[in-house]
Computed example of a mutant assay.
Amino acid sequence: MSKEKESVLAGFKAFLMRGNVIDLAVAVVIGAAFTNVVNSLVKGVINPLVGAFGTQDLNQYSSCLQAPCKTKNGEVVDGIPIMWGSVLSSVLTFLITAAVVYFLMVLPMSKYLARRARLQAAKEEVQEVMEVSELEVLKEIRDALVAQRGATGPGQNGPGQNGPGPNAT
């Protein structure tokens, strides 16, 4: 194989092994499984509840344009049907999916991220206070050493100084 083909394959392999691609693949698979759950919920629970006011299947709700629609064995014989029941079912499926995704995934994750950001900010604030405290302590030690050295400065013959001490005779 030529060097160019090897680099293309290496680049493709690096692309596939990136975390974003794997995360996206997992999200698609989980999303497909989640779609089945929501569709089952809508078809098995929501549609019958809404259908309690009419037919059990929302997809059967329709209106006709022009002449009255006549159906035989589910076939439209006359007129132009407007299948607004299937649109209503799809809208309900979308709204339920959006609500479940928001309340079970987005909202908890945003609360978690906000809490984590607050903790990180508090940790940084404590770190800053610690750095300031350490700096202040070091300044106090320096000032004490300077004051101590200044009290026994030149001409006072303190300990460690050249010359006799104050009790020399």
Rank of each mutant, 00 (worst) to 15 (best):
10 A>C: 03
129 V>K: 12
5 K>D: 11
56 Q>T: 14
17 M>G: 13
75 E>W: 03
63 S>W: 03
101 V>I: 15
23 D>Y: 12
78 D>N: 13
108 P>E: 04
74 G>V: 01
125 E>L: 03
9 L>D: 09
159 P>R: 13
133 S>V: 01
16 L>M: 13
86 S>T: 09
150 G>Q: 13
37 V>C: 07
150 G>W: 02
80 I>Q: 14
127 Q>N: 11
169 T>R: 14
152 T>G: 07
12 F>Q: 08
142 R>M: 02
166 P>A: 15
89 S>Y: 00
96 I>Q: 04
169 T>S: 13
145 L>Q: 08
157 N>C: 08
20 N>P: 02
15 F>E: 12
127 Q>F: 04
128 E>W: 06
121 A>Y: 07
163 G>V: 02
22 I>T: 09
49 L>K: 10
145 L>W: 02
22 I>A: 09
39 N>K: 07
125 E>R: 08
33 A>M: 09
43 K>H: 07
67 A>T: 15
105 M>H: 05
149 R>N: 13
98 A>P: 00
92 L>A: 03
56 Q>L: 04
163 G>I: 01
38 V>Y: 00
10 A>E: 09
33 A>P: 00
160 G>H: 06
152 T>K: 03
161 Q>C: 11
59 N>L: 01
136 E>I: 04
163 G>A: 05
159 P>L: 12
102 Y>E: 10
98 A>Y: 11
91 V>L: 14
13 K>A: 12
74 G>Q: 04
40 S>D: 11
128 E>H: 11
77 V>L: 15
81 P>W: 00
156 Q>Y: 07
8 V>F: 12
61 Y>N: 05
90 S>P: 00
100 V>S: 04
118 R>F: 05
118 R>V: 10
113 L>N: 12
77 V>C: 10
69 C>H: 14
121 A>Q: 12
42 V>S: 03
40 S>Y: 05
114 A>L: 10
146 V>I: 14
33 A>K: 11
105 M>W: 07
21 V>Y: 02
85 G>I: 00
67 A>K: 15
168 A>K: 12
154 P>D: 01
73 N>P: 00
65 L>M: 13
113 L>P: 03
125 E>V: 01
132 V>R: 14
